[in-house]
Design a binder for these strands. Structure first.
Length: 552
RNA sequence: GUGCCCGUAGCUCAAUGGAUAGAGCAUCAGCCUUCUAAGCUGAGGGUUACUGGUUCGAGUCCAGUCGGGCGCACCA
């Protein structure tokens, strides 16, 4: 809709002889009495034109030329806003569009021909997924959906590392527990993984191998088995939430030499060195971030000769550029907040267009059970498990609760609320609207033989003109804009809010307007409006990954 | 100490620099012999943590203060 107004206003400014370099903003006033849309261009341009904003607005209005039957009223209000009121006919014609386009309604083409990569979860296989990871997973999945809805070719990627120190400790942890099963007395270090799952893996290995592995100091067998089991469990958990990935990128590949015998990691070092950002001291190789104004240099290669995580991380991002992605999105939790600035700096030095990289950071999750707030704890056995939460409240509530707050807000996950089968629970509020429409349509088929697949009577929608109907119709035509806004902000929460208000508009319409008892043409028109609402709810639910129940 | 995020109704949270700061829950008052009341309508509830600044206009941007969270490894 914003694209509908912008050129018209642009032309009006020109023919009114007003020149300004200010952007033409199209807003949707919070209060409907200020119109369906408004622009503040007269306020912005007033200063450089040396004119009173209201007077300027009055001068612009006669030059606005809209297509017929689209705009009902244009007026100047407040300090100099120009407010637009849509014609009822225009609104209802837009509703027809919803029904014509169906599942495709709302989708855009701005990403056509562009490749985007969205990286999320990326947990190393050292233990089961925690609730905190779940939030990032759902956020990433929804963001990927938003990109797809605008026509991007999206790769959903999971970056992991099955080498490295943490995995070493994992193997060691399993081995120690295994030795316990073999009857040995061991000392289990506090630095190792404490979770019960370690013992379970060890037990399985004991059952398969007896004590035959006890004398070997070889960690590999323990590590391998642990990795397999844990990765399988992670993917199972993600699957329960319909979180999927197209690509699993193993950090290990960055340690492998190419045809010329050079590893991607080494190439990064070489390139940074050529630019004068590599120094060596204390036996290690450093990224000289002090010359970028930071307090300390950052280790790229440890004195042991192994790269630190930072180096492959840079190399990894280079592969994203080399693989032709024009948009690179990274989703991660607040605990990784310090991770990306160095990567960005390095990429900038190496000449990559870092504007293409978008970072979505989600703040932490606390859970409330029985009014008691529990804090997430890491690397202890008592971290809250995502699987337990899904068991408790179900996949739909888990997904929706994770994204119903802005990603920058700390999320307080009220487990009791998520379980409630009542109106307090936002999941039910949304799904109920959908189920209610389904029920209505079933009844309509029975009572008046309404055929939802027929498009013959679409024009009847134009009969509708009550406030409740028009507001619902307006909400429907707002959907494509919301999708774009949500993507621009990398914020699926906007969609949750939108769908909530859409459901609200529907419930009000349903309350105020009798449907099956209305005269036949009106009844059909209202059923079509309901059908369009159901369509938009479904399309929105698909973006959020929430199911659309036919009855409740 | 320092980097990032947050501070808005009793609670959980909204508000692309715009108009009288909004929802839900909770509280109170109404609406079912009628298409799902898991719904709708209405009322009360605010010095947007504080102090300055920027401008036609600030919850929003800038500086500082006070609170809370997360980081600040030759772990990832």
């Amino acid at each position: 809709m914003h694209e509908f107004f912008r050129p018209v206003i642009q032309n009006a400014l020109r023919s009114a002889g007003i020149t300004t370099d200010k952007p033409i903003n199209i807003e949707q006033p919070a209060d409907k009495k200020f119109g369906d849309f408004s622009t503040n261009i007269a306020l912005l341009a007033a200063k450089e034109c040396r004119r009173n904003p209201r007077e300027l607005a009055q001068n612009i209005i006669p030059h606005l030329t809209f297509p017929p039957d689209t705009i009902a009223k244009v007026e100047v209000a407040g300090a100099g806003f120009i407010n637009f009121y849509l014609a009822p006919l225009f609104i209802m014609q837009s509703v027809e569009q919803v029904l014509v386009e169906g599942n495709e309604y709302g989708k855009g083409k701005i990403g056509k021909g562009e490749k985007a990569v969205v990286e999320y979860v990326s947990a190393n296989p050292t233990g089961p997924l925690t609730i905190g990871r779940g939030r990032g997973g759902v956020l990433g999945d929804c963001i990927a959906n938003l990109f797809e809805a605008q026509g991007y070719e999206v790769t959903r990627e999971y970056y992991f590392n099955d080498a490295g120190r943490q995995m070493q400790i994992l193997g060691e942890s399993v081995r120690l527990r295994y030795l316990e099963h073999c009857g040995k007395t061991i000392e289990f270090p506090a630095t190792h993984y404490q979770g019960e799952y370690i013992g379970e893996i060890a037990k399985e290995m004991y059952q398969d191998h007896g004590t035959t592995l006890a004398d070997s100091n070889e960690l590999q067998v323990f590590k391998k088995r642990a990795e397999e089991i844990i990765f399988t469990s992670i993917r199972k958990t993600l699957d329960r939430l319909s979180i999927r990935h197209d690509s699993f990128f193993n950090e290990h590949t960055l340690y492998l030499p190419d045809e010329k015998g050079i590893t991607p990691n080494q190439r990064v070092i070489d390139a940074l060195r050529k630019n004068g950002f590599i120094t060596e001291y204390d036996g290690a190789t450093w990224f000289q971030t002090t010359s970028l104004g930071q307090e300390k240099d950052k280790v790229l290669v440890k004195s042991s000769g192994e790269p630190s995580y930072r180096l492959p991380d840079i190399a990894y991002h280079i592969t994203k550029f080399e693989r032709g992605f024009s948009i690179i999105v990274n989703v991660f939790g607040a605990d990784h907040i310090d991770e990306y600035p160095d990567v960005i700096e390095a990429l900038k030095i190496l000449g990559y267009d870092t504007q293409r990289i978008k970072i979505a950071i989600n703040q932490f999750v606390t859970t409330t059970v029985d009014g008691q707030t529990l804090k997430m704890s890491t690397r202890k056995g008592n971290a809250d498990l995502l699987d337990d939460l899904i068991d408790d409240v179900g996949a739909d509530a888990t997904r929706l609760f994770f994204i119903m707050r802005g990603k920058d807000s700390h999320l307080n996950f009220d487990v009791e609320l998520a379980k409630k089968q009542s109106k307090d629970n936002p999941v039910f509020y949304l799904q109920y609207a959908h189920a209610r429409i389904c029920s209505l349509l079933r009844m309509a088929l029975q009572e008046i033989g309404f055929d939802p697949s027929s498009s013959a009577d679409l024009h009847l929608l134009q009969l509708l003109d009550s406030p409740a109907e028009l507001q619902l119709g307006f909400a429907l035509l707002d959907y494509p804009t919301m999708l774009k806004t949500s993507l621009r902000m990398l914020e699926p929460q906007k969609m949750v809010e939108y769908l909530h208000s859409l459901a609200e508009h529907f419930h009000r319409f349903y309350q105020e307007c009798p449907i099956l008892k209305a005269e036949p043409d009106i009844a059909k028109a209202r059923l079509l409006l309901s059908l369009a609402t159901r369509q938009v709810l479904r399309n929105g639910f698909r973006i959020l990954g929430v199911s659309a129940p036919e009855s409740m």
